[in-house]
């Protein structure tokens, strides 16, 4: 049976790659390989996963330099006998393949991503027309599950600590297009302020890397357009 060389990051921000050899199998994902190393070779290896089937988004890592869901990445598709696995980029490293995602999550908050409603439980549920243009735009961005892959893919995030990043701004875009959201002005102010949508270079790495095919690039372009219109219109949001 032929073997696969797996180079796995060990340590935190300071550390080094450690090589392991794992049997090559007919069907095996990158997550299978990491699990096999942890179970059969080094039980101290730390990594995250939960569902194993592309639902939860917890197993995101850098695979051969690209951020990916390891459970949805077949070794065969990499077409390489050496696989390098590192923790997600643009996040502090805790241990081995585990990153500290709190900064990433904090940016979601800083982008004004708190839903606010003027309604209460006594009111009937809001009627939202699924075919309305605003709802279609919101729906196109809403399936994001915070896996952090786009955040790791973004070069602007790596250059500019203040930049909120594609995931947070994508969420802001779905929120400002949610007709039930009453804090639209606050969300816009946060999403277009310092660290906001104006920093995006439209490189599209987020869109290329998103495991479920969302386009934060398009969402951010929408925010840019909306913010330009509002500034040209003389108001701040």
């Amino acid at each position: 049976m032929s073997h696969l060389t797996v180079r796995i990051w060990r340590g935190a921000d300071e550390g080094e790659f450690q090589d392991f050899s794992v049997p090559m199998r007919e069907n095996q994902t990158v997550l299978d390989v990491v699990s096999e190393v942890q179970r059969t070779q080094d039980q101290s290896l730390s990594y995250r996963f939960a569902c194993r089937v592309g639902v939860c988004g917890s197993c995101a890592m850098m695979v051969n330099g690209k951020p990916r869901w390891t459970c949805r990445t077949h070794i065969r598709s990499l077409k390489s006998s050496v696989v390098t696995i590192a923790p997600l980029r643009n996040m502090p490293r805790i241990k081995d393949l585990v990153t500290d995602m709190s900064g990433f999550i904090d940016k979601w908050g800083r982008a004004g991503n708190v839903f606010e409603s003027q309604r209460d439980r006594g009111d009937a549920p809001a009627l939202v027309d699924p075919s309305s243009p605003m709802r279609k735009v919101a729906d196109a961005a809403i399936e994001c599950i915070n896996c952090g892959v786009c955040h790791a893919a973004c070069d602007v995030v790596s250059w500019n600590d203040a930049y909120l990043g594609p995931a947070a701004l994508n969420r802001a875009w779905s929120l400002v297009n949610d007709e039930r959201h009453s804090g639209k002005k606050e969300t816009m102010m946060a999403a277009m302020g310092d660290g906001g949508c104006g920093n995006c270079h439209s490189q599209g790495n987020c869109m290329a890397a998103c495991p479920i095919g969302l386009s934060p690039t398009r969402s951010i372009a929408g925010l840019k357009k909306m913010s330009l219109m509002s500034l040209l219109g003389g108001s701040d949001a």
């Binding site: 102010m189 277009m192 310092d194 660290g195 840019k224 330009l228 500034l231």
Partner: peptide
């Protein structure tokens, strides 16, 4: 002014 960057962008 949080809109300073946005104004320069514009």
């Amino acid at each position: 002014n949080p809109m300073f960057e946005m104004r320069l962008y514009l």
